[in-house]
């Protein structure tokens, strides 16, 4: 079985800026994958090259085994891309746009799927409205519908929830999750890290055109994210042996940064031995933001 996406040694330069520096990445069929990184890391460039909107200087990219340049027709039939920019054609209605998009993919009669897409994305009552007159959130839904019009096995969403309201975000993710359950591979870039953490099973982090981390979400959290523990002590003093773990103090509250939950047991045992009582304990879950910040700042 071919990987959904295979990227090997892809380099791309824009003038003096080296946007991608030998990116290697393989995404398996059926994965829900996140591509994260700060602005300018190369996420959109990589997606654009994958979609055929930009050309790599070297290396190759394949979608379901089809090279994006040599077999561009098969590659493009296999992938649906929701672009980051809120773009639309001012001359046409929502339904016309979807019919054109179907035609470009050689689908003669696609009205049943178009109707289903309109219904699923809450666009049914906007079908005959000009796209230009829709709100930003609605335009975003049209972009998603356009990307899915040919039922692509691989779906790439470049910042699909940027600037959209909570309701749309939730309905969009419910729909995308359904597609993933039905076997579609989903690749997503987002600035909402909690989205990636909740939805994606694997994550790649890009920084200055290079992949700096690639692992399952759980492993990344374990490896990079610290557990923040706040403890109110009575008497408010800390044994010498725990000082290295301390990352801050606010009156009687001591804040620790721990790598694993197991370390918490060591802290509590030491406190018991020193006869210091724990009055209050708060443990915060590690999140992807810690991983992200740590990798970006490193």
């Amino acid at each position: 079985m071919f990987p959904a996406i295979e990227i090997r040694q892809v380099h791309k330069r824009f003038g003096n800026v080296q946007a991608l520096r030998g990116v290697d990445l393989s995404i398996q069929q059926g994965e829900f994958f996140a591509l994260l990184g700060p602005n300018g890391a190369g996420k959109s460039t990589l997606i654009n090259i994958l979609a055929g909107l930009a050309l790599a200087d070297s290396g190759y990219l394949k979608v379901l085994g089809h090279d994006v340049r040599a077999n561009y027709r098969e590659a493009r039939r296999s992938i649906g891309v929701v672009p980051q920019e809120l773009v639309y054609d001012a001359f046409f209605t929502v339904r016309e746009m979807l019919q054109f998009q179907s035609g470009y993919f050689n689908l003669r009669d696609n009205s049943a799927w178009i109707d289903e897409l309109l219904e699923s994305l809450g666009l049914a009552d906007k079908a005959d409205v000009y796209v230009r007159s829709l709100s930003g959130g609605m335009k975003r839904r049209v972009l998603v519908a356009q990307a899915l019009v040919h039922k692509p096995p691989v779906i790439v969403l470049d910042e699909p929830t940027a600037g959209v309201d909570v309701e749309l975000r939730q309905s969009l993710w419910a729909f995308i999750r359904r597609l993933n359950r039905e076997g579609h591979t989903i690749v997503l870039t987002t600035h909402y890290l909690e989205e990636a953490e909740t939805l994606c099973s694997r994550i790649a982090m890009l920084k200055q055109g290079e992949i700096v981390a690639l692992d399952t979400t759980a492993n990344l959290l374990n490896r990079y994210a610290a557990i923040q523990v706040s403890i109110r002590l009575n008497p408010p003093r800390l044994p010498e042996s725990l000082q290295p773990l301390l990352c801050g103090q606010d009156g009687e509250v001591f804040r620790f940064s721990l790598k694993h939950h197991a370390e918490l047991e060591d802290v509590l045992r030491t406190l018991r031995m020193e006869e210091i009582r724990v009055v209050e304990l708060d443990v915060s879950k590690p999140d992807l933001e810690d991983v992200f910040l740590r990798l970006v700042r490193s």
């Binding site: 027709r73 098969e74 891309v81 773009v87 639309y88 054109f100 470009y104």
Partner: peptide, 17 residues
Amino acid sequence: QAKMNGSIVFILLPPLA
């Protein structure tokens, strides 16, 4: 117009020769 407003992507993404 398509280039300036970005809607050119709608004809660049499909498998048109």
